[in-house]
């Protein structure tokens, strides 16, 4: 564990908690893409199936369990408890355009043609694009609540820090994982436009709104 990965994991955790807390406190999921949240629940479920087959550390197991539980809790709040506040009309990204190609890619390009391995690869690919319905929703409505932008910033920062973690691990441990690195790069690039708006608007106290 290096400093980049340590901060990244807690940034990821912060993002998840910020979103849950925001929905719970405001009793509303307005402006939040339920589709992105379902995709993240699928990402965690398919990636952390190894909870059943191998034990790495108490930290690893606890974080996995927390990520999975929180992602399901978020989906529950959006689609069940606060369903009336869910903005389905604006959450119109066609997720099958992500899930189907990503599934095909995971079957074609993986480290080992085994079920758990393909599901792990699928989760890595899917995570890299899972935020697209949320970004699409913001581009459609033209604005985002400030708390939602903090969520997105923490989520983007997490994968950007993992890139530094992988550079570190390559130099000091000699390991690299091309699938994770390429997908992580794609994922980080998708946030670049948002990072720019976050720094130039939100951090200066302005609301994130896009020109019409």
């Amino acid at each position: 564990m290096n400093i980049f990965r340590g901060i990244a994991d807690f940034s990821h955790l912060a993002a998840i908690i910020i979103l849950l807390h925001k929905i719970w406190k405001s009793r509303s999921c307005a402006g939040i893409s339920g589709k992105s949240q379902i995709l993240f629940a699928i990402v965690f479920t398919t990636r952390y199936l190894d909870l059943l087959t191998s034990f790495i550390s108490l930290y690893n197991t606890s974080m996995k369990v927390i990520y999975i539980s929180c992602s399901y809790a978020t989906v529950y709040l959006i689609y069940m408890k606060f369903r009336a506040t869910y903005d389905g009309n604006h959450d119109s990204f066609r997720v099958e355009f992500l899930v189907v190609p990503v599934g095909g890619l995971a079957v074609l390009i993986n480290h080992d043609f085994a079920l758990l391995e393909i599901l792990w690869t699928f989760s890595i690919y899917l995570e890299s694009v899972a935020i697209l319905p949320q970004l699409f929703m913001i581009s459609k409505t033209g604005e985002a609540e400030t708390i939602t932008t903090h969520y997105l910033f923490c989520l983007g920062l997490y994968r950007a820090l993992y890139l530094f973690n992988w550079i570190w691990r390559f130099y000091f441990e000699g390991f690299f994982d091309m699938i994770a690195i390429v997908a992580g790069l794609v994922q980080t690039v998708l946030y670049c436009d948002f990072f720019y708006l976050y720094v130039t608007k939100v951090l200066k106290g302005k609301k994130l709104s896009l020109p019409a």
Binding site: R5, H12, S54, I56, N60, M63, K64, H111, G174, A180
Partner: peptide, 10 residues
Amino acid sequence: CGRQSLKDEL
């Protein structure tokens, strides 16, 4: 290519 070693990541 070191794949197993990265399984400890989240």
